[in-house]
Structures are given as structure tokens and as C-alpha cells.
Amino acid sequence: MSFEFKIKNSQFKILKAAAFAACSIPLALLIYNGYTDGLGVNPIETITRSTGKWTLIFLLITLGVTPLRRITGWQWLIKFRRMLGLYAFFCALLHFTTYIWLDQFFDLMEIAKDIPKRPFITVGFASFVLLIPLAVTSTSGMVRRLGKRWQQLHRLIYLIAIGGVIHYLWLVKADTRKPLIYGAILGALLGYRLLAKWRVGEFFARRFALSPAAKEE
């Protein structure tokens, strides 16, 4: 399915700037709405929910890079992955900050009790903590230094995203539709990887002799 679509370095720079701007839109809107009384009747709830939602969305977009790259053959997509992952971390940081500041008012005793007590907070907190080493090791220097271990470490994102969906599923009162939609998307993204790992494509290609390459083998 892959077809040539290469881009020059100068084009890439423009594209990256555009992507950066696009990723900033949710946050810019949140700030704009904050200043124009547009966050509704319960602004703090709106901020908590919005930052949580965008953490999950950025995690899913980050996880979408590899499948999209494989399917399209556009290798340069990989260069956006770090930025997307860092946006996820940044949103998570804001989300966690709204919790300790606007929800708990820096009451550390209360927070220490709350995190293990409420399962949805426990899972969210675990996901957030696991994101920290990934953000710290996201620099090119770290990628080089850690070598193969970098890849192993960054597989934590699967766990983090699963935790994010469970966190969402456990916090809704009755309407599980939205967390299940996010869960289905995550399932597809992780499922793709499993299928790729098991070489299901190759298996079918060989079995039904669809490609000449498979016949020769």
C-alpha cells in the first residue's frame, strides 16, 4: 500500500511548526475561555476534564504514529512522535496540577490519603508517574545513550495509555460510552502492533500465496 511521499528538510520544518501550532490549540482555547468567562458554571471541573481528555488524546495520537508510518510508508512521520508524546506529558502535568491545586488545595495529607483510596485516582496517578521517565529520556542524547533499552523503556506508553482508559472508565458515574470509544481506539492501535508482531500479514500472504515473494520463500 505504501507509495512514495518524501519531503524535503525545509518542508519538514514548516510542517513541524504547523503541527506544533495545531497541538497548542486545545490549550490556547482553554486559556482564552478562562479569560472570557467561557469555561461554564464550574470552571475548575472544566479545566480538570479538558486537560485529562487531551492527555488521553495526545497519548492515542502518539501511539498512532507507528501504525500510520507502516501503512503509508511515510517514514518522516516518526519525527513528530517526540513532540506528540511531550504534549501528552504536558497535558498530564497540567491535569495533575489542577488536581493538587484546584481540587485538593495542596493538602498533602489529604492527597496522600486520596491517591490509594480512590481506584480511579490510583490508576491515573500511576500512569502519570510512569510518564515522567519517558519525558526525561525523550532527548536525542538519551535515545543514543540508552540504545536498545530506550525502546524497552518507552514501551511503558502502552501501560500508561491502558491506565488512562481505565482511569476514565472508573470515574464516570453511569455513561461509559466515551471511555469505551477511547478504549476501542486504543485497542485498535495496540491490536495492530500485536498483529504486526505475530506477522499475521505474512502468515496470510504465505498461506494463500498472495504475493510472489511468499511463493519464492
Binding site: 458554571v41 464550574n42 475548575i44 484546584l102 480512590r118 481506584p119 470515574l171
Partner: peptide, 14 residues
Amino acid sequence: PRWSQARERRIPEF
């Protein structure tokens, strides 16, 4: 089980 009931936010208080 999922929310503490000890405190509340009186809308629109901070």
C-alpha cells in the same frame, strides 16, 4: 467509593 464527601464546591466559589 469514588468521591470524598467531606467537602464540596459551592458554585461559583474557588
